[in-house]
Write a protein that binds this DNA or RNA. Structure first.
Lengths: 202, 202, 202, 202
DNA sequence: TATGAATGAGACTTCATTCAT
DNA sequence: GATGAATGAAGTCTCATTCAT
């Protein structure tokens, strides 16, 4: 980012630009989106966009970063609420997690576009991957709480596959009919639980 | 497609164009790929590309179709080999299937690009989706063999989630280190088996 | 022209090519017409077209030539029929001439396209002009019969303007509604007669 | 037009673009003219051309419009100068008109290209036709002043043919040698006068 | 001689980015 | 700091023409 806004006015403008970019990218995809269009939606001039970001790609990366933070923060808020000390069942945690991320996908349609574009351009920091990795790392810690005896490497791979599966199936589900989506989410929970039950103690 | 080649020489050229397109799309993504680049890689002229395909998009769709056919044919070959009458265990089928599609992903890197791009352009027949749906339908029939009592709708959703999960995890795995990838695939088998065991009889 | 056909079969092909070119040029104009399209309409291959004509422009020029010959021949046939020796009134000749050329315009829509294109490209022999000039020269001779005393230069300019006017107004008339066209033609006769009556004796 | 310039600098640029287009179209015709060539002649970049006009065709139409306005304005200025109340002879008006439009043709060579191209592309507002029709309508009014008794339909057709004839002959004359041109114009006046004298009172 | 696949120059147009105001 | 006009590289696609079969 070229300039970090200090004044309130500027910060609002930056926010508007990011929101506009989010919408446009999500509506038409990275390549079809034009910087002019984004400036217009943000009700600024193209010059102002380039005052914050050196180029289109940087604008996209900032969006990725924003999603990473949002997803991580969602995860943390969730864990805080159900403090582990309360000794909830891990299957409850799984269900809550899936529900929470389901809402995340539904509420933030831009995330999809971001995720998709990342899988094209290798140059970009794979923010989608980054989100999943960050969450997998945290999930691993939670698993350590429930199954301290399982070797670390086993926990890592299990956490990884669980997070990726959830992410992937939710990704698929948003495009299905609402009814079908609901059933997919339910079945996803079932799958994750049955898998984890081969690793974690009841 | 504008012209279907009849002579051998032309058919080879067409093949070369498709292969080149496959590579380029896979390397840089749909939008960043240029038709000129594709022609060059195929060692033809841009004019020849446009003799077969009316535009860039049509070239891409032809690739999609090719992958759809390849994946379906892979699936069918697999089922034929392990004739159901031989009464194999379903878990053996699952393992074989995952191995086979893993090879498919590894050998055909272009499939990835095709799959990803489809999630952007709504106009395109979603070949990635199409592949999965086609295979899910077939998988459902296999499940019917092992669990004729499970209601149809349950089978459908189960087949769908299994296929999507396999597809998604393999998709993730190709980008990981070989060692990590191997472990992910192993764990994927485990997850699918444990999920299916809640539905299918031993 | 590259090759003059000697065999009957070839001559027919050449004729078909010229007819096709005539139609296509007339339908879409010179630039929008494609050589491929012309070959197709002529039910030949593009290669055959290029066997007769070195390029698109030459094909067009051949068409021009054909129109020049047709128009000239029309004029000659007309004069023959109304042998001057029969001492017809010149106003009768004018009327017949206008009627004949009106039919020419109506029957040969391609002539219009040819004429229009010539006024763009200066390199081309202006066949439209050529037609008019050729006919003007002949018309001048006819005027000499009726008014031997009028100086040659005066006759030349009068013939020229009469021919150009007829040509131009007929050109305009073909694009008008049939009814309007008929009135325009009638008025054209009136105008030419009133002008000529200032030069030729009754 | 995409953008209407407000600042002086832009207005000049737009003017330069139009002038350049005028020249180029007039030199090589609509199709052979390239947008790049026009930009170069206007001493701008191709991007600037496309900032004002969405495509080549729109640029052409703007030119048509400009000619229509210029021609109409010329006609009006002419009529104002020779106020009808001054009861001039109509033959004087005809002569002045022809002289004025002759200058118009000579000074604005681009008009020719515009006029010619319109006879090809049916989609375009036929500006050439438009010019003539607009002037014919006005000419009809003038005729009404001199011959209020002549029925309206007769006046209309007479105005139409006079205007078309003048337009067509001037069109031809610009391509002739200066001397020949002058004689053609003189003869044109003679023809129009002799025709009108069959309709209008002395 | 006829065919039509192959070629590639070149046209139109877009859009990321700069910079004078 | 904000604006938006100007730039021009680069992309897609067409079509006249050639030449091997």
């Amino acid at each position: 980012m070229r300039r970090v806004p200090t004044q309130e006015r500027s910060r609002q403008r930056l926010e508007r630009i990011l929101d506009a970019a989010d919408q446009i990218f999500s509506e038409v995809g990275y390549d079809a989106a034009t910087t002019e269009q984004i400036a217009e939606r943000a009700e600024t001039s193209i010059g102002s966009v380039y005052q914050f970001f050196p180029n289109k790609s940087a604008l996209f990366e900032a969006l990725c970063q924003r999603y990473l933070e949002r997803a991580q923060s969602l995860f943390e808020r969730l864990l805080e609420r159900t403090t582990l000390a309360d000794s909830p069942s891990w299957s409850k945690i799984v269900d809550d997690m899936i529900d929470a991320f389901w809402s995340f996908h539904v509420d933030q349609p831009g995330f999809r576009a971001v995720w998709v574009h990342q899988n094209i351009s290798a140059q970009l920091i794979a923010a989608g991957d980054a989100v999943n990795q960050a969450i997998a790392t945290r999930a691993e810690e939670v698993m350590a709480f429930f199954a301290p005896d399982v070797p670390r490497s086993k926990r890592r791979i299990a956490a990884s596959i669980v997070v990726e599966t959830i992410s992937a199936i939710l990704f698929v589900a948003v495009r299905r009919e609402p009814d079908e989506a609901k059933r997919l989410v339910a079945e996803l929970k079932q799958m994750v639980r049955s898998y984890l039950s081969t690793i974690l103690p009841a």
